[in-house]
Design a protein around this nucleic acid. Structure first.
Lengths: 211, 211
DNA sequence: CCGCTTTCGATACGAGCCGTAGCGTAACTG
DNA sequence: CAGTTACGCTACGGCTCGTATCGAAAGCGG
């Protein structure tokens, strides 16, 4: 019953941060070689050079472990801020596609999303560590475009939130479907045409950027 | 070494079609109650009232079984042909969302797609029995719109194929992401706004319907 | 330097599921 | 009726799971 969050527990042997990194790295390697269904925690522990008990002390199960292992892949996501909304969209699409193209992201992400349909806590964990980080890019890109005058400044907050949700589902969903279901590569040409659809279809009032 | 396809093998005890139906139905029920990872073939066999060996005689494993069980859910998909491209898109989106809203589709479909990243034969099976059936709706809807004059008749076949692929990934991906990742319902309002984006963003030459 | 606390590695364990084999029976054909 | 195939049932070795237990190691406060 003591505060464990900030002081991080002053007594006892500290947990090895190196073990954490080794376990997550080993999890990604196992995802690449074996895929989700054949991945076993015992195998991950062996690859990481730790005991199986250490693994169970830190993660409740396969689901949570893979979420954390995959979430690290999305650390590199950031808004390119390339000067125009079209280039920003294209850049984000290509970044997201580059991450999803890695086999550990493919098999791991879809599997945990599938499991999350029966596990609310898992869904919350995915949202917090993966999805929200992607969504932030949409919000930032929108704000930048508004500052440039490419998008109307701000409407009713409820309407704005629904619009952001919609284009987020469209962008992320399109890349996801292209990569995982259609199993075809996201080229620059594809990203450009997707951005074109969004730019023409987004705002009812589209003031062309003043030239 | 005999032809098994057309004559369907004239000798011996025939396979029970009722068993097939019972197994697939039991698979869907198990998906709802247990989810992908906790679904066992022994449990499915018990639910279906058949022996476990019967199950293994017809399907190579969990992956193939679930693909077939989920594929049946997409039988009801058909183009509404409601008279306008906007209504057609909205209708297809709502149909697709209604199927994906069922828990057996949620957990089953995503799980097999995740597994397909390591199994080319499984990916081909998914494509043939699920994805292509969805894609056909896009092709038909496009043809109807062209007949109505809502879309330009036909361009370079390569360009047309790429355009169909793109909007298919956008539509199916958006619904998939909305339902499974964002975990929020696809309302009529949402479907309408998605259709709006596509209609405004699709063709460079958009002749408004005469009338 | 010495207790206290917590983590770590190693091993062992019962439980459950996997996928297959064997066998006798049922269904259908010529 | 003989031939062929599917079916139900049972049993099996092998694997993974998640947990328990134990001694050793790594920090902290005195």
């Amino acid at each position: 019953m003591q505060s464990r969050s900030s002081a991080s527990r002053a007594t006892g042997r500290p947990r090895s941060a190196a073990a954490d990194a080794a376990i997550l790295e080993a999890t990604r390697a196992a995802l690449v070689e074996l895929g989700w269904s054949k991945l076993t925690l015992g195998d991950v522990a062996t690859r990481a050079g730790v005991a199986k008990t250490t693994l169970y002390r830190r993660w409740a199960g396969k689901n949570e472990l893979v979420v954390d292992a995959v979430a690290e892949l999305f650390d590199e996501l950031e808004l390119p801020d390339s000067g125009s909304l079209a280039a920003d969209i294209e850049g984000v699409v290509l970044q997201f596609a580059a991450i999803l193209d890695r086999p550990e992201a493919k098999s791991g992400l879809m599997a945990v999303v599938a499991e999350s349909t029966h596990d609310g806590a898992l869904r919350a964990r995915i949202r917090a560590s993966i999805v929200d980080r992607q969504k932030r890019l949409v919000l930032e890109g929108r704000a930048h475009a508004q500052a440039r005058g490419e998008l109307p400044p701000e409407e009713d907050p409820g309407t704005a939130a629904r619009a952001v949700d919609l284009i987020f589902d469209v962008v992320a969903g399109a890349v996801l479907h292209r990569t995982l279901v259609s199993a075809e590569p996201v080229t620059e040409d594809w990203a450009c045409r997707l951005a074109q659809i969004l730019l023409q279809g987004l705002p009812e009032t589209t003031p062309p950027p003043p030239g």
